[in-house]
Deep mutational scan, measured.
Amino acid sequence: GETKIIYHLDGQETPYLVKLPLPAERVTLADFKGVLQRPSYKFFFKSMDDDFGVVKEEISDDNAKLPCFNGRVVSWLVSA
């Protein structure tokens, strides 16, 4: 499998796309960081919350699996 991750960088209009050679349910924050090489950023991901619906959730645990929608991951990188 392959996972497409779209990421928005510090408010830039056009998002970036990276592809990881892993199925979406196995991709972790560490996998994503390894491709990006951007150490001083906070990582937020499109996520579903039972109370609020669609939210941007910050993930900082490198072992955390990334939230996935239709085989895609959507993220926002914010300068720390």
Rank of each mutant, 00 (worst) to 15 (best):
L36R: 06
D50K: 14
S60K: 13
L20W: 07
F52E: 15
S79R: 09
K46E: 15
P23T: 01
F32A: 04
P23A: 08
E13D: 11
E58I: 08
G11C: 08
L36I: 10
A64N: 06
I6C: 07
D62F: 06
V78N: 05
K42T: 08
K65Y: 13
D51E: 12
N70A: 05
F45G: 02
S79K: 10
K65D: 00
G11S: 09
D50M: 08
R26Q: 14
L36P: 09
K42Y: 00
S40P: 09
D51K: 14
L22W: 05
D62W: 00
P21G: 05
F45E: 08
D10V: 02
E58N: 06
F69L: 10
T28I: 05
D50N: 11
F69T: 08
L29H: 07
L77N: 02
K19A: 10
Q12R: 12
Y16N: 10
F45V: 02
K33E: 03
F43W: 05
P21D: 09
I6Y: 15
T14N: 12
I6Q: 09
D61G: 02
Y16V: 11
A24T: 06
K56T: 14
M48Q: 13
H8R: 08
L20E: 04
F44N: 04
L17E: 15
A24H: 06
K42G: 04
V55D: 09
P39G: 13
Y7L: 02
Q37C: 11
D10F: 03
L29V: 03
P15R: 08
G71L: 06
G71M: 00
G71W: 06
W76N: 04
F32D: 03
G11K: 08
F45C: 05
K33D: 00
M48K: 13
N70W: 04
D61S: 05
Q12S: 15
F52V: 13
Q12V: 12
I5F: 01
A24D: 06
D61F: 06
P15F: 01
Y7T: 02
G1E: 13
F45K: 00
P21N: 13
K46V: 07
C68V: 13
L22S: 01
V18E: 03
I59P: 02
D49Y: 09
N63V: 05
K42M: 04
P39N: 13
D31S: 05
W76P: 04
S75F: 02
W76V: 05
A30D: 00
A80M: 11
T3I: 00
G1L: 11
P67R: 06
E2Q: 10
P67H: 01
S40K: 11
A64L: 01
G11A: 08
Y41V: 08
E57P: 07
Q12W: 05
D62G: 01
D61H: 03
C68D: 04
F43H: 02
E13C: 09
